[in-house]
Nucleic acid binder design. Sequence first.
DNA 1: ACCAATCTGCTTTTT
DNA 2: GCAGATTGGT
Length: 737
Amino acid sequence: MSFDNLNDKQQEAVRQLDGPLLILAGAGSGKTSTMTHRIAHMIEEGIPAWNILAVTFTNKAAAEMRERVESLIGDTQDMWILTFHAMCLRMLHIYADRIGYDSNFVIYDTSDQKTLVKNIEKEQGISDREFKPQYILSVISRCKEKEMGPEEYRRSALEGPREKAVYAVYKEYESRLRENNAMDFDDLLLNCLRLLESETDVLEKYQNRFRFIMVDEYQDTNHIQYRLISLLAAKHHNLCVVGDDDQCIYQWRGADISNILDFEKDFPDAKVIKLEQNYRSVGNILAAAHSVIRHNTSRKQKELWTTREDGEKINYYRADNDREEADYVARQIGYMNRSGRSLNDFAILYRTNAQSRLFEEALSRHGIPYQVLSGMRYYDRKEIKDIMAYMRLIVNPADDLSLTRVINEPKRGVGPKSLDKLAAFARVRGQSIFEALIDPDGEMLDTLPGRSYDKVKEMVTVMKECREQRSDMSVSDIYDALLVRTGYLKSLEDEKSVEAESRIENLMEFKTVIAEYEKSAEDPTVEEFMAQLTLAAEVDNMDDSQTQVTMMTMHSAKGLEFPVVFIPGLEDGLFPGSRAFDDDDQMEEERRLCYVGMTRAKELLFLTSAEVRTRYGRTDYTRESQFLREVDKKLLTGSAVYQRRGQRSSLGVSSGSRDGFAKEPAYKPFDALKYAKQQTRKAAAGGDTDLNQGDRVKHGKFGEGLVISVTDSIVTVAFDTAGIKKLAKGIAPLKKL
DNA sequence: ACCAATCTGCTTTTT
DNA sequence: GCAGATTGGT
């Protein structure tokens, strides 16, 4: 294989396969290309694919790496290319019993954790106002990152009321996770570490297998991840880590920057290769980013360089207010789009997700299509979480948290009081609530009052059936069955409200997600589907197939690049956030974030701020960001293509000529919901949508049948052999005969 | 047990 | 400015 398209340093990194290697890869220095070629080179050298492990930060990065390696050498089936969490999940799934878990364990996401902590606080008479669940969880997470259990915490912590409360909750939290056969995000890593530490045969197996290990974004690994990798690499020492200390932006989540700074100490024979040539950005952008990052004191000295032209200067615009700021951005995008730039070229990268709304509104006003990649909002919807809880229970009946969530959703007349009774009853029997409910002896069901009995029994029967037949059913089948037969969909339909409509909408859209999973997975199972969903990052959902502007946080944008980048909200208190002003470390992290944001841009970079901004209902005057002040003045200009007159920035940047809204051509406003619907319909091309009562239809699984009734979203069909089924219109594989 | 009306506290950032 | 929680009435 020839590496002609790589520079000397990159080639050196590619050829250096044996022993520890640290690649300090600056932003845009061809990191991914180097890593993929390095893997390809291993294969070329005769190293079997199954000896290779590559760990990334997001699923998107993993998928991209796999794709690119595949394009170089073909099949990558036997290679592990995945995220830390996915790697741990994979190992734990096989060896769960070794650490006292059932392999059907579920993963609790942040909101599950919060609910659990709240429940515990209630039970223990601890006020969730005084000790906020979020706070307690952050302490617990920090403990877990240090491998510190509840008892050790008590011994090491102070003895105030706060510490007492944290201890009490932590202890109960841990035992409840065990009882529910559930793990949180930290547990995935921690339990995997425990597994490898205590089970020498398992450790040896993986040590022998993974003779060559690569870790991407090493600057963002935490202590547990560091330990995991050290253990796995302990035998062969063929560990290559890639990272950039200037891009460490997850310290708040426990990322330990010393992992990368001390790599040479950990591995004294380590080779270090610096990639400093930037291929991504135009000279001015690089210079501007550097003028900001050099204000950080604790960093490895390096400066990126490029052979590219200087390009345009960095554009800075100070708007009157936040709404006008958003409008300015939309105007610029509209203008550049009309002069020939694709909408895919643009990204709006902000500090906080809350900022996205104004930009959504502005882009809609201007008729510009966009996608927002914001913190899990889609899966956070109530209806999705509800149906997921149903699915979880089928796999893992020990999950009391999920049962509590859905037993009265839809209303089955089971309020908190009945639920308490059920929980107590189950406890006496030594079972989880759901286990006790599905127990053939029916004892617990019989304790229910008449009004709720029938409904709960019906639900229990359905769930039991799904559970028993789940190996013969596809994930979609299970989803359909649950949606319809638990009465969940029916109760939404009966509501006849706009909100209920949109919930149904979302539930139907979710079918596309399932269908996509089923298409991509080798052996689709409900378990795996749910795990993948909880471990998905928002960037993983990025869609490049549409022509649209992309918005996300600067955190999410790490590893991505766009020709034109807008960074709005450059104001003290917002970016950098207010907390950064009394903590130097936090200020440095914010600055690194700014660096990451700026270096996403290839050709044009726009910075904006608003003189007046409304936040949590309050409108305040702002001050231009410290980071703006740090940008080399020579690199800034205020004469954007579309500019307002008379704007004066304290930075002394000049302004151009005014242009208003009036000339905007009347684009049709972009309707996100309508768009989503279209997408769903398109993706579900398998099913006929123009069905009417009385039609004869054929279903892939149920055979032929007669349509009994049709609503906007549901088709009820009496199948000749399979009985009456309610199916999702346009999605279920129904063919008109 | 359920629903509607009022109230609170919140914004970093995410696997 | 909103979503989620709390409260009070049925």
